[in-house]
Amino acid sequence: MKTIIEFKAVDILQKTNIIFQNLNFKISSGEFIYIIGKTGSGKSSLLKSLYAELPIKKGSISVLDYDVEKLNDDNISNLRRKLGIVFQDFQLLTDRNLYDNLNFILKATGWKDKDKIDGRIKEVLDNVHLENCEEKMLYELSGGEQQRATIARALLNHPEIILADEPTGNLDPEKSEKIIALLKEINDKGTTIIVATHDYSIIKKFPSHTFVCENRSLVETSSENI
């Protein structure tokens, strides 16, 4: 399978703290990866470095053939359009309904045709089983529904990779399982998924390649060892 993410001798810093040192790491197309570790171990920083939100100190990162550390503003936008990002804090716009949240993203990423926009919104809401929630304001959605809304948003631009930062962080076990099942379903269709989480129960339930953030490095482990 084709390598779509590659870290070569990367140092990642948060302000002056070294989070990762000399990180070497590859992810192939279609994989489902868990990144685990204690709070503050660098899971989110690792994901942020993938979408050029956190600049790296040393080394190089390649994502979908983009050299992340060399990107200018326009190319960062292009890269992010190819990634679906599920943010830890959702980053949904609370002043509008679900349809407008998704419509806004499509317009911001260059979609113009109203029919195509409507069609795509309907499609992604079907995918995440929120088909009847288009008109609902965000405060009318439950935590699980909001999380699925962020996944719907991540799916809008047919991403090749989905980066999910603690997608089950605010959910009860039942809803968490549903979210991971949904991500697995998306993965089965060919999208590469990277999930940063500290919810080990979901890994046991849905085992897959797992990497642990420890000692400023990323170590592969098996689901049974968790």
Binding site: D73, S77, L93, I105, T109, G110
Partner: peptide, 16 residues
């Protein structure tokens, strides 16, 4: 926050 969200989802600076 609106500006940041737009940036994170791939909106160009020109669009913002």
């Amino acid at each position: 926050f609106l500006i940041r969200t737009m940036k994170l989802v791939g909106a160009t600076n020109k669009f913002i």
